[in-house]
Nucleic acid binder design. Structure first.
Lengths: 210, 210, 210, 210
DNA sequence: AATGAATGAGGCTTCATTCAT
DNA sequence: AATGAATGAAGCCTCATTCAT
């Protein structure tokens, strides 16, 4: 019994994330305002009223969607960083692999698009996301860049700006796949995209050979 | 007399773009669904009903916002491309400058964010945008990459994928400034961002020196 | 000049009835509330604002439509009645002929349907119509019935009720042709309808032959 | 338990006809366009939104009002017709009695006025009404007339036209009582009206005695 | 006299939220 | 815990009316 909690209980504990999963999918697809709670409930296989047993309001649901979303990946990234030993560009590659495995191929891949679209309407959530995801993510990349420069692997760069430049193609890939790529053809092969990008980045960061 | 057409008339001709300008600003800020036509009207200094003298519906207004927005810049880009003579990376720089002057520093800068957020909800407009902006924009960059490769300036690359990688940081800058950068600090200096990016790009594309 | 008033003047004087004619047609077709003044104006070939030069409001236009409509026919009927000499059933026939010529085949034919539909919404106009059309019309028919009874042509009848029964098929023909007959097939040949009805009426009113 | 389904459920099943009843009353009184759904809801003792749980739109409510309205009476009439044996004029009397009991003294009495007023605005509903009520009603009366002629009770008549003539006073009584009679005095005693009419009709149809 | 651009009150409709079952 | 009927605030849109030209 202690090993198999009753299915009802398991269900009950699983409910909130079933609900946020449904909400995430629809928020990403249609935007927050255009998503109806009735549709969220239907997608999660419950009734409209049930949503309110777990979330106080539509906005609370939105917050939960974002907060459940991405932080674990950042934490993992920080641990990869801490443990890494050796070539810095390889470190960047590992961070990217980790990011892609933990987000890129999961439903969370839609979160950046969602945050971009709704940032203005939810300053509080945006603040949270900024502190817990963006700041820490930029910190990771910044630390890697400085490590590479310190070790003489990368050429000298204005780190704060370079962070944004380095992250941009990854973010853009996520956003693109969550928006236009879904409607129009333009499928984009993420593997090739990331390979081309990492190649470009390696050459672009590399200290000029004498 | 010919110099002063009735102010009534002058107004009537100017109205549509006054209205789309107001709508663009609010659509970008809040998203389509969360924008109230009453606020659009107020921002344009007219009453709610006046909107309907010029646009049949909220959706028609959205379409007009997108369609009026960006195409001229693409056309200019094509003409720059056609006339260019000489170094290909310099060509990329000119295209970027033109893009930035025509969009980056104008209210149209918000359109990519808007399209990303609403693509799913307006397949028809998305189709239009894809055909008239994205396809042509990708064509331009692709032609430039091939030109550089043909002239031995750039190393060999899978063009179709490289296009997306090359454009991503520019798009992301626009999107970023239209969303989170507006709420949170992280101001991003576009001049420095673009300089760092172009530097990275130049090194990344360059054919390996022997 | 006195014989040919300037076309502008003629136009000006003709305007009100051009407008009520247009309004009548649309009010009958769609009902008062569902008729847009813009459509009335368009049908009369003027602009929306012009309506307000002649009528204070939509309701005033409605009143004018009704008031211009039918009274002349009633007056004519009263004069026919006064001059008639001889067979009473023939009198009824003449009244009907006059009614049909003055209303049945004119645009005014739609007025009964219009009054029936809008009576509740315009008590004042209804009052007017009742006093000036219905009461006088019933008076005419009532007088004819009494004349026929007094002359021993018609059998004895409760006049007040018989009036309504006698008028009903005529009214119904007008109403029918202004409503369902226009949408659905069921064309109804008024000539035959009236003939059958008058025949029925004649036999129905006739004093039983001994 | 089987006797008391939850009051919730009982209510839910009763709602649609509570709503159409309220709507019928107001549509007849004011016309479709001039009736506000808020008033319909208030008359049914529910809120505006509740209407939309049962009907998709104002127009759908209108359709339901008409479709729920009258058909049963026609069906009953057809069964009376089939079972009748004997004098044909007596058959007409029974049909009328049935009509009056099933419509004339019920709220459905307003439907003919409503259809007459709105026929043009709802061609689809008009079509439905024509097929299901008018055509079948005319069929009934036509069959009765032919029966009477075949049995030598009625004189020879052009049936198709006579149908309309025969029905007209009944329809007109319904329409009249739903419109002007409500506002103005002219109360009309239906009992006397129908008696006078049936008397007129009997004599009018009767084969001339030799 | 005539126009038609502009207004804004008012109605239909949607949907987040509540609550009796 | 779960439901889904009911609510009513809020937004899109229409159209009678006004008024500068």
């Amino acid at each position: 019994m202690s090993e198999h909690p009753s299915p009802r209980k398991r269900r009950k504990e699983a409910r909130p994330s079933e609900l946020t999963a449904a909400a995430l999918a629809l928020f990403v697809e249609r935007g927050f305002a255009a998503t109806r709670l009735e549709d969220v409930a239907a997608r999660a296989g419950v009734s409209k009223g049930t949503l309110y047993l777990y979330f106080d309001s539509k906005e609370a649901l939105f917050k939960a969607v974002i907060q459940e979303g991405i932080m674990p990946v950042v934490t993992e990234g920080e641990s990869i960083m801490a443990q890494h030993d050796g070539d810095t560009f390889e470190l960047l590659g590992r961070l990217l692999e980790n990011l892609w495995a933990g987000i890129g191929e999961t439903p969370f891949a839609g979160i950046p698009k969602l945050m971009v679209a709704e940032a203005h309407n939810f300053p509080e959530v945006t603040q949270f996301y900024y502190e817990n995801v963006i700041r820490r993510g930029r910190g990771l990349v910044g630390a890697a860049l400085e490590r590479g420069m310190a070790r003489g692997e990368f050429r000298s760069l204005p780190v704060d700006t370079a962070i944004d430049v380095v992250i941009a193609p990854i973010l853009m890939l996520l956003i693109w796949r969550a928006s236009l790529a879904r409607c129009q053809g333009s499928p984009v092969d993420p593997g090739e995209y990331l390979a081309v990008y990492m190649d470009l980045l390696r050459r672009g960061l590399q200290r000029s050979q004498v």
